[in-house]
Design a protein around this nucleic acid. Structure first.
Length: 949
RNA sequence: GCCCGAGUGGCGGAAUGGCAGACGCGACGGAUUCAAAAUCCGUUGUCCGUGAGGGCGUGUGGGUUCGAGUCCCACCUCGGGCACCA
């Protein structure tokens, strides 16, 4: 029925989903068979020097995907299509392009899946990867398949472990400002070149003391770090998995914040370089800002206040306001809390400390909450005023930042101001705010802070800031006042200028199974030793049960038993590490998922190298610095903003360590970064709050209904539970991959998030159908292209299009590329419809420009046009400047900024010609009637504006 | 709460400080058709006007400028990150 009706009328050679599927699978097979997208290396197993042929290189990279069990939805490939289009464009511009995709396949979801199903995570992970490869192959991405590595491959994680050993085997030399091999530190200790902290010589250190001293300098080191320990689940929890009242999200077990022995990475040693080198990266400014804020460098001072319990060191970023410090606040965890607390206050203080321990850090710092705190009953002395100031404890002060103690200057800090108001503490101004500050707040200027509604932060003249040997009075800049105060503090031994960072060292241990084992063993004294490189990889042992061992939920002092700890035959190992064959215990934690994603891009470059993680020559070619002062790194890195801080910071840190140790020539992993947006979707709920299938919802004038029941709409991610998933497979079925690719690129700028709307996809299919018809007859399948000379106007239009498309492609503005191609194709369609044929001189460049976006269709048309080789490496069309020049352009004429008409004028006409033409317009004459022109502004070729009174 | 970003027709969006709404969807009208689909052509921010034309319009309020979607200040709403999801 529908088939017979359709079959009789439907043109046999129309570009339909079925024809697209046929074209697409044929070309995908051809590309695979011919290795069309294989990129040659200058050395090593993938060496092919002939194909390098003096081309410039472009290393284009997508953020490392996790192979999810749910498969892809249409939101996932957005970035991959974007990089593919760009990579194809660069190939046509003569670049040797490397584009590949691997899998970040360790991690929690696979482990959770294994726990619930009992299926080994490797089996599950591999089938997920296979499914994702199938879905992506169908998209026609031009990836070099030989370079698709997975972090769970033994040959991959061997090198992750090797890099861990490099970090472990290094220390940071602050004098040279770089990492060096730990053996060099040992030699410097032995020779006396290294300054030891006590007065003894290295030779006087015991073997254990030497070991401890060296270990304490490593970039990977063991320490007691605070974690959320949940014995009821047997695991450590993320902050987000802990509820506000300190229990586990899952199971509602108690969670204890306590210290545990963990591997850490000394990323703080690189804080300055991680900040400074941002200046040399081509990254979006907001991302750089987020990294700078995350590292949180602040220059300030440590100031020592004397108290009954001894000196209390505070860190402040505003030493210039020390004269206004009217109380001190210690973190509840501060070691001096119990020593300073008076007998009277002891009860209240102990209760507050316990309460604070149960809160999460982010909750404690929530500035919207009322500040809480308790007076300790003790006082300290302000070193500049000599006055006694009360000591409080309050949970908004965190132990992990600065010294865990602050001097409170309520007149100059809003949190201190709130606290002072709550507890009736004195507020003393040390700076006079400018008049405008008072005006905005509708109060009379006064240095009496009782009239102030809030603290003043900014440059203002210093007042009441003097003692016998120091005066800041009359200064008006914060930095001048700071440096004068710092000099005074230093010379009077009350403190010193210092720099602190918000950045903390990186906690690197996970009490899990599905991760890289550490290449570390412990001797009978508990000392950690590196496994020799020859013993890598340290393979993950087989396991049948992946559950963490659960313990008594209320026993805060128990220790986690990670899955690996249960594999007795694995944990005990006999090795000769230089002191004879002995028995050692393996480290039973595993690395975090970040580890693999910190260096994977380098393995793409040399995926099969068995001798080294990457051949230095290969690294230099693809990632090396491109000139003096250039950091080197990936030429384009595309991924979501959600990785703005952590992944990008960790990867930069590892890269810098490898650079310092001489393993890589580049200083940074990712030279240019671009953040793609998200494709989101609408979801609908009925009156009971149940989600209903989004595809079945109908819209009528702003109201939505499902089964004639009104439903409410919400906007967010695609997800199974929201019943709003659309998959690429559905799009391949309904439209074909090229239409799907085109729609994803056309729906908005790559860096913006937008909602998916299947209904709109047909617009792109119609465009491709029109384009197809301009080349191939729908009825006969014959070419409709001839060698006729193209009309002048269309030729000009083509060259305007080429120029615009090239610029937009370079700027990753694929949505406007597509708009320009559609405009040109629409113009061509008019000609072709009228004449019956299309000029080859217009069709071929159009097909070439389309090919990065719709590679299958372009290959097919290119082939039908008589070409026998792939369109992939055909040079991109060039715009002819002679055809871009216009005889006359249209310029709007404004009167007082309002458009009153348009003039047509030569593009190189002078100001007077513009004005004369503008004044001659009827509508302008009308608008000027009875008014006096006072000024005329001409922006040549842009606008004429006549200002009248 | 803190840090970063975004708000433009019915919808997705376009616009080096210089003609707001390119291109696509939808809607409406026409051609074709026995009819429909498909295709092709046209209209489509809004209000006033038969028309030429004019008023108003880029989340809200202010400011800078001859001129502001674009720059500055404040506010509102939404999205991302906050260290064991990665």
């Amino acid at each position: 029925m529908p088939s017979s009706a359709g079959a009789t009328n439907f043109p046999p050679f129309r570009y339909s989903a079925r024809l697209a599927a046929d074209i697409e699978s044929r070309w995908q097979d051809t590309w695979d068979a011919e290795g069309t997208y294989n990129a040659p290396n200058p050395a090593g197993p993938l060496k092919d020097v002939e194909r390098l042929a003096g081309k410039p290189k472009a290393f284009i990279l997508d953020m490392f995907p996790y192979p999810s069990g749910a498969g892809l939805h249409v939101g996932h490939p957005l970035g991959y299509i974007g990089t593919d289009v760009y990579a194809r464009f660069k190939r046509m511009k003569g670049f040797n392009v490397l584009h590949a995709l691997g899998y970040d396949s360790f991690g929690l979801p696979a482990e959770q899946h294994a726990i619930t199903t009992g299926i080994h995570p490797r089996i599950n992970t591999e089938s997920n990867i296979a499914n994702m490869r199938r879905q992506l192959r169908r998209l026609g991405l031009g990836h070099d398949a030989r370079r698709s590595v997975s972090t769970t491959d033994e040959e991959f994680y061997k090198w992750t472990q090797w890099i861990f050993l490099q970090v472990h085997g290094a220390w940071y030399d602050t004098a040279q400002n770089r990492a060096r091999r730990i053996e060099e530190l040992v030699r410097e200790c032995e020779s006396g070149a290294h300054q030891l902290p006590d007065h003894r010589a290295w030779a006087e250190y015991s073997a254990q003391e030497k070991h401890d001293y060296i270990d304490s300098h490593r970039l990977a080191y063991l320490t007691d770090a605070p974690v959320n320990w949940c014995p009821g689940l047997g695991t450590i929890l993320a902050n987000e998995e802990v509820t506000a009242d300190g229990r586990s999200d899952i199971g509602n077990y108690p969670v204890f914040k306590r210290n545990m022995r963990q591997w850490m990475m000394r990323i703080t040693a690189y804080a300055d370089r991680l900040i400074d080198d941002l200046d040399r990266l081509d990254w979006p400014e907001p991302i750089k800002l987020m990294q700078r804020n995350w590292i949180g460098k602040s220059e300030g001072a440590r100031v020592s206040f004397t108290s009954s319990a001894g000196a209390i060191e505070v860190f402040t970023t505003r030493p210039d306001t020390l004269f206004g410090a009217t109380f001190l606040v210690l973190s509840p965890e501060h070691p001096l809390v119990s020593a300073v607390t008076s007998a009277d206050a002891a009860g209240a203080v102990a209760a507050y400390v316990a309460e604070a321990a149960a809160k999460a850090d982010d909750e404690r710092q929530d500035d919207s909450k009322v500040k809480t705190g308790v007076f300790t009953g003790a006082y300290a002395t302000n070193p500049v005023t000599g006055k006694d100031v009360p000591i409080f404890i309050a949970d908004y002060v965190l132990m992990g930042y600065g010294t865990g103690a602050i001097m409170a200057v309520p007149s100059g800090d809003q949190r201190d101001f709130d606290f002072a108001r709550t507890y009736n503490l004195p507020i003393v101004a040390t700076q006079m705010p400018p008049l405008s500050w008072f005006e905005q707040r509708n109060i009379a200027p006064s240095s009496d802070c009782s009239t102030w509604p809030e603290a003043f932060v900014g440059d203002g003249e210093y007042i009441d800031s003097a003692n016998d040997s120091l005066s800041l009075n009359g200064l008006s800049s914060i930095s001048d006042a700071k440096s004068r105060m710092n000099v005074w503090l230093q010379s009077n031994r009350h403190g010193e200028a210092t720099t602190t960072y918000r950045l903390r060292d990186w906690l690197f241990s996970r009490q899990r199974y599905w991760g890289e084992p550490f290449p570390i063993v412990y001797d009978e004294h508990g000392n950690a030793h590196a496994v020799p490189q020859s013993a890598l990889p340290v393979l993950l042992p087989e396991l049948a049960d992946f559950k963490p061992t659960t313990l008594d939920p209320n026993d805060a002092d128990s220790d986690p038993i990670p899955p690996l700890a249960r594999v007795k035959e694995w944990t005990t190992v006999t090795l000769d590490l230089g002191s004879g064959t002995r028995e050692y215990k393996r480290e039973v934690n595993v690395m975090p998922q970040w580890a693999g994603s910190c260096w994977y891009e380098m393995r793409y470059l040399d995926p099969t190298n068995a001798d080294t993680f990457i051949d230095p020559e290969v690294e230099r070619y693809w990632m090396g610095p491109q000139g003096e002062g250039h950091t080197g790194g990936v030429d384009l890195y595309v991924g979501g903003v959600e990785h703005a801080v952590l992944h990008l910071l960790y990867a930069r840190f590892w890269h810098k360590v490898l650079h310092d140790l001489g393993h890589v020539s580049s200083e940074e992993p990712f030279h240019r970064l671009f953040n793609q947006g998200y494709i989101q979707a609408y979801a609908y709920r009925d009156a009971r709050g149940q989600t209903v299938p989004a595809t079945e919802v109908v819209e009528d004038n702003g109201t939505y209904s499902w089964n004639s029941e009104t439903v409410s709409r919400e906007y967010g991610k695609m997800g199974k539970s929201l019943k709003n998933i659309v998959t690429p497979d559905e799009m391949y079925e309904e439209f074909g991959a090229d239409t799907f690719r085109l729609y994803e690129m056309a729906m908005g700028p790559l860096d913006a998030s937008r909602p998916w709307n299947t209904r709109d996809v047909v617009g792109m299919q119609r465009f491709l159908q029109r384009l197809w018809r301009n080349v191939v007859s729908e009825d006969t399948g014959e070419l409709v292209v001839t060698n006729e000379a193209p009309p002048e106007e269309l030729l000009r239009h083509l060259h305007r299009t080429i120029a615009g498309v090239e610029a937009d492609m370079d700027g990753l503005r694929f949505n406007t590329v597509i708009a320009k191609l559609i405009e040109f194709n629409n113009a061509l369609t008019q000609h072709t419809t009228a004449v019956g044929t299309s000029p080859r001189a217009l069709v071929e460049p159009l097909v070439q420009m389309l090919s990065p976006l719709c590679p299958h269709l372009a290959e097919e048309l290119w082939n039908r046009l008589g070409h026998t080789t792939t369109v992939t490496y055909v040079p991109f069309p060039q715009a002819d400047p002679a055809l871009l020049k216009e005889d006359a352009i249209e310029v709007p004429v404004q009167v007082n900024g309002k458009v009153r008409g348009r003039i047509s004028i030569a593009p190189d006409a002078d100001d007077d010609a513009h004005i004369a033409a503008a004044m001659a317009l009827d509508n302008v004459v009308l608008a000027l009637e009875g008014k006096t022109p006072v000024k005329t502004i001409v922006v040549r070729g842009r606008t004429v504006n006549i200002v009248v009174k």
